[in-house]
Design a binder for these strands. Structure first.
Length: 501
DNA sequence: ATGTCC
């Protein structure tokens, strides 16, 4: 872990309304901190130190610390790092393209009021989309079984027409993705194909081919599937934007959070190890002495390798999400015949993208941060969201709900980014030690929220996370985005295999 | 986050 050399009390902070700037040095531009006074109290010293380390690392031109920030691998989870010249694997994160997706169904809230209907839906979804470490696909749909060659095609092509067709994913959903596919360092798919062939020969990529067949599964930790009722805001703008997004007030929707599973993990951890060995062998100084902040200058073989690996992992996550949504829709159709549904959006919070920041083409690393392009942003031209801005999907907690937001003009000052959720306030061990199981379970019961878990995981309880409304207030008060709708949980699907640790 | 340590 990083050694603390800048105690919090010595870090100069400049308040700019509800956004606060920390000055890492006298010569670099400030870190912009998005957070109300109470949110700023949630940043511990290591989190702030990681932000300073990241801001002062080679080639970095901007850093934003979001209200949901907490300690991460090298950089805080909940930050945006911008560089025109360098790529940083740590500030993308270990779960490459961890993302959110939202499926709007035409089912009225009343249709799932009956607990037996919700129990049947939980069973139908769990039958198709497994949870837990090491768990692969157990699709009951013959046409959607992922063998090795289809897995390879998916990680090379992403949500291409052919991949969608083979997996029974409606092709129109590809237009509802932040990015429906990723290409290699030279902007070609061929780079990914040859990189994949090479990776498959590498010893440290253990069971790599099998990991590609885990498409259509949730995994564990904070990943989840959640059945929601949509509550669109009462104001005219919310109603109008909700219509553009395809959100339907008072109807059922399904929110998913997952990433690139063991496949992306293997790629990310392989890159950390490879780059750390090179830094060590070549005696290159580490940013702030932190080996978790290894980097590669763009144009180097190392950067090319990382960008290819990131793209492969990102393609896995993309197809994984779309397949999960297709399987969830199929589950609803099994329980409630005739159900139709469409993807609202699919958007990541762990990815580096090429964007233009302050007129400079840069790699924007979002580590636990969500892209937030407002209406009129050049990159949205030709998409369904050119005028409105795209949907921003933010998981909160089952008790307070989750949120759909839309960016405002002010998002420019946060490098077109907002938070990615509530953000952890208690470490997993701390949560397991201090939180009471029956309090957690009875709170969900009081809200009539069902779950596939006999005991809800303590380290995932609402109390293990920051106050979601305070986090959202930070974003709104800084002028970054506005809330369009709240999603109220009706049942949750999570990995319960480690709930009794 | 991840078959939870190379």
């Amino acid at each position: 872990m990083t050694t603390m050399s800048h105690p919090r009390s010595t870090v100069p902070m400049i308040a700019t309304g509800e956004a606060t700037a920390i000055l890492p040095t006298e010569t670099t531009s400030p870190i912009r901190v998005i957070g109300t006074a109470s949110i700023r109290e949630t940043f511990d010293e290591l989190c702030i130190q990681q932000a300073i380390n990241s801001r002062t690392a080679p080639g970095v031109t901007d850093l934003v610390l979001n209200p949901d920030a907490h300690c991460g691998y090298g950089a805080p989870v909940g930050c945006v790092m911008v560089s025109p010249s360098h790529i940083y694997p740590g500030p993308v994160g270990v779960d490459i393209k961890c993302s959110m997706s939202l499926l709007q169904l035409d089912v009225p809230a009343e249709a799932i009021e009956d607990r037996t209907v919700r129990r049947a839906l939980i069973a139908a979804i769990c039958k198709r989309t497994p949870t837990g470490a090491g768990k692969g696909q157990r699709s009951v749909s013959n046409g959607r079984r992922v063998n090795r060659s289809l897995g390879m095609k998916a990680v090379i092509e992403g949500a291409s027409e052919a991949v969608c067709e083979q997996l029974g994913i409606p092709i129109r959903w590809a237009d509802r993705c932040e990015d429906s596919f990723h290409v290699g360092h030279d902007d070609t798919q061929e780079a990914l194909a040859s990189r994949l062939d090479w990776l498959l020969t590498q010893r440290h990529m253990t069971n790599f081919a099998e990991k590609m067949t885990q498409l259509g599964s949730y995994g564990g930790g904070n990943h989840f599937g959640e059945c929601e009722v949509v509550e669109v805001g009462a104001d005219d703008r919310s109603k109008q934007v909700a219509e553009t997004f395809g959100l339907r007030d008072g109807k059922v929707a399904f929110l998913s959070h997952c990433g690139s599973r063991g496949f992306g993990h293997n790629l990310a951890s392989g890159q950390f190890k490879t780059l750390q060995e090179k830094f060590s062998r070549w005696s290159i100084p580490l940013p702030a002495g932190d080996r978790q902040l290894v980097y590669a200058p763009l144009g180097s073989d190392e950067a090319d390798g990382y960008l290819d690996d990131m793209a492969l992992g990102a393609n896995f996550a993309t197809v994984n999400h779309l397949l999960i949504n297709a399987l969830v829709l199929e589950a609803f159709q099994e329980v409630i015949p005739g159900t139709t549904g469409d993807l609202v959006y699919f958007i990541s919070h762990n990815i580096a993208r090429k964007e233009i920041i302050d007129n400079v083409p840069s790699w924007v690393h979002r580590k636990g941060a969500t892209r937030a392009f407002p209406g009129g942003h050049h990159a949205l031209a030709g998409t369904p969201f050119a005028e409105s801005g795209h949907p921003i999907l933010l998981p909160g907690n089952p008790r307070d709900g989750s949120a759909v937001m839309v960016a405002d003009e002010g998002a420019e000052k946060s490098c077109y980014s907002v938070n990615h959720g509530a953000g952890r306030i208690l470490g997993r061990k701390q949560a397991k030690r201090t939180l009471d199981q029956s309090t957690i379970d009875s709170e969900l019961e009081d809200h009539d929220i069902l779950s596939n878990c006999r005991f809800y995981p303590k380290d995932e309880a609402p109390a293990a996370y920051k106050d979601f409304n305070e986090v959202l207030s930070s974003v709104k008060q800084a002028g970054l985005a506005s809330e369009v709708a709240r999603l109220k949980a009706r049942f949750v699907i999570k990995d319960a295999s480690k709930a009794d640790d």
